[in-house]
Design a protein around this nucleic acid. Structure first.
Length: 554
RNA sequence: CGGGGUGUAGCGCAGCUUGGCAGCGCGCUUCGUUCGGGACGAAGAGGCCGCCGGUUCAAAUCCGGCCACCCCGACCA
């Protein structure tokens, strides 16, 4: 872990060690801040290179303080969230083997364990999409550049992030191609071709695809140059039907976020400044992360007739006149994986909701020599029974790896439940169960469960684990959301979480708020009560008739 | 694009100030002993020191240039 010691960027080790020592001394309350508590405490004077700061840190510092003990963080553990959330996040996703860096800036290799999480989410969402009459299709990655230019706002919005292909087959292309940043244009073009009558409507399409956007500041899962997503695209005869579709898609996202990913998300509408490029209205589900920031977990756009006009998506109505279609688009991406990490994870690593856990239960057989075979056999047999009961189960029978290592390893990887199975358990007909975390009863230990009843028991445990995570996330969100009516309250709220505030809706005012607090309007919650009043910042009348969630966002 | 960093073994780093056989920890390989919370011993393998140029008898180290990546902001799922 390059940053495993929690050093500030660029801070060298001697400086780091000295800072920690200084902080410890300052905290000890006995010595003055600059006191030299014994020679060993001089972890480095200014300008003096410190050859053995690491050694010193490992050995710990002792001296007159007695209680002063500095120990470098074990390289096997992660940066604590409280110390640096961004470092924690990076440590966890790499250590849990969700992801690796690609060779190109901002690119990401999704490793099998991470990809499985995505597959599980994908399978659930795909089921919801299909169950409501949508059909999957696939459209090309390459789009003629001219397509992007047909919808004015759309071009403007995406131009800065486009990858453009200028050469193919060794020759310069007459018309450059763009790699899709999203597929409204090419799907619009095809819709125009396929729709001619009101009988062709609604057209309900979805595609699972990769898209590419050049991002100035990539973050694994949250903002990579290339990402995987689902994009729904539909065309309707009336605005009312399109609006209903937009809300239906939003409900997929809210349900997946809460029921499957156990996120604490809030469905709402984007303010005009945050709207999708080319949309009339944009809806979103915004989820609170464990550092109090907001993550847009899915969006659903009502396009009105903007794209229909740009691409000629028209239909003959019952009276025979040509009418513009009303279209929608909506998407959820691999960003969700990052949202899961940042919602549930802790200093021991990932915590996965059972619905998305590649392994819901890991069985660790314990025993060596003659016992090994018996235990291993029993573990395999138990795993088979759990799998037949629909529980994703893994037996960790790696030899030469100690049980303690396995415990920590699977905790890092977020497995909800672990079973230890050793000779003592076998003799008693039980297995030792541990939960990845115990909300509201921290410290609750291992529990012996009867092997015979394991499938039912564990299924119930998984269900309650899932529910517990969702509740815990929602509690956290509620505890970190403040209804504010003054500027000081606002700044205090967005420093640690979300603020519900009235706002004038003006861009200049949003910009000022962002410049001062880094917070932006995330959404106008659908469930918000009507309320009038003065803008939290400038005092002008509120624009939306409801409170707006302001937060620092990913 | 602005600011701050870093490039040395698979990973994390030291060495550079003051040029002189390329090191440490983890991991990896083999053997043995271990296994209920990150095991231990012994023996090994592993390097265009980011790239190009310069200075020098000699460059990881000094000088010049370039490149890449990471972190913090502005853009965004």
């Amino acid at each position: 872990m390059g940053r495993g010691l929690g050093r500030a960027g660029g801070e060298d080790l001697p400086r780091f060690a000295r800072r920690i020592v200084d902080e410890q001394i300052a905290r000890c309350g006995v010595c003055p801040p600059q006191a030299e508590c014994g020679a060993e405490n001089k972890a480095g004077q200014d300008g003096e290179p410190e050859a053995s700061a690491r050694q010193l840190a490992q050995d710990g510092l002792t001296g007159p303080l007695g209680n002063l003990k500095i120990v470098a963080r074990d390289e096997r553990s992660v940066t604590p969230q409280s110390e640096d959330f961004a470092d924690w996040y990076n440590d966890v996703i790499f250590r849990a083997e969700l992801v690796d860096r690609g060779p190109v800036r901002g690119s990401m290799v999704i490793r099998p364990y991470g990809y499985r999480i995505w597959e599980l989410l994908q399978a659930d969402l795909d089921g919801r999409i299909k169950a409501t009459g949508h059909q999957n299709a696939y459209f090309p990655l390459l789009i003629p550049q001219s397509y992007m230019q047909r919808e004015a706002e759309h071009v403007e919005g995406f131009a800065p992030e486009l990858f453009t292909v200028t050469h193919a087959g060794g020759k310069e292309l007459e018309e450059p191609l763009v790699i899709r940043p999203t597929s409204e244009t090419i799907i619009g073009e095809m819709m125009a071709k396929w729709i001619s009558s009101h009988r062709d409507l609604p057209l309900l399409l979805n595609q699972w695809a990769n898209v590419l956007r050049w991002e100035m500041r990539p973050r694994m899962f949250l903002r990579t140059s290339e990402f995987l997503w689902q994009e729904g695209h539909t065309a309707h005869a009336t605005a009312a039907e399109a609006t209903a579709e937009t809300m239906l898609a939003l409900s997929f996202y809210q349900d997946v976020a809460v029921e499957i990913a156990a996120l604490a998300s809030v469905p709402g509408e984007k303010t005009p400044g945050e709207r999708f490029a080319g949309a009339e209205r944009t809806f979103t589900v915004e989820a609170m992360m464990r550092d109090g920031r907001a993550l847009q977990a899915g969006t659903s756009h009502l396009m009105g007739t903007n794209f229909a006009a740009a691409f000629g998506i028209t239909y003959a109505g019952e009276s025979g006149t040509a009418e513009l279609c009303h279209t929608t688009s909506w998407g959820m991406s691999t960003r969700m994986v990052g949202g899961v990490v940042m919602t549930h994870g802790d200093d021991k690593g990932l915590v996965l909701p059972p619905a998305l856990a590649p392994y819901q239960v890991v069985v660790v057989p314990i025993g060596r020599g003659e016992q090994a075979e018996t235990v291993s056999f029993a573990a395999t047999e138990l795993a088979g029974r759990l799998r037949r009961a629909g529980i994703r189960t893994h037996v960790d029978d790696r030899p030469q790896v100690s049980p303690g290592f396995k415990f920590n390893d699977w905790e890092m990887r977020g497995v909800p439940l672990r079973l230890e199975l050793g000779p003592r358990d076998l003799a008693a007909g039980t297995a030792l169960m541990s939960r990845r975390l115990n909300y509201q009863q921290p410290g609750a230990g291992k529990e012996a469960i009867p092997i015979d009843a394991a499938p039912d028991l564990l299924a119930a445990e998984l269900a309650s684990f899932q529910a517990m995570l969702a509740r815990r996330a929602a509690d956290f969100r509620d505890e970190h959301t403040a209804v504010v009516s003054s500027w000081p309250e606002f700044t205090a709220a967005v420093a640690v979480g979300w603020a519900l505030a009235l706002h004038c809706g003006e861009h200049a005012c949003e910009d000022e708020i962002k410049a001062e607090t880094a917070a932006t309007p995330r959404c106008i919650p659908l469930a918000g009560e009507p309320e009038q009043g003065a803008c939290i910042r400038c005092g002008k009348p509120s624009a939306y008739g409801k409170r707006v969630i302001f937060a620092r966002a990913y």
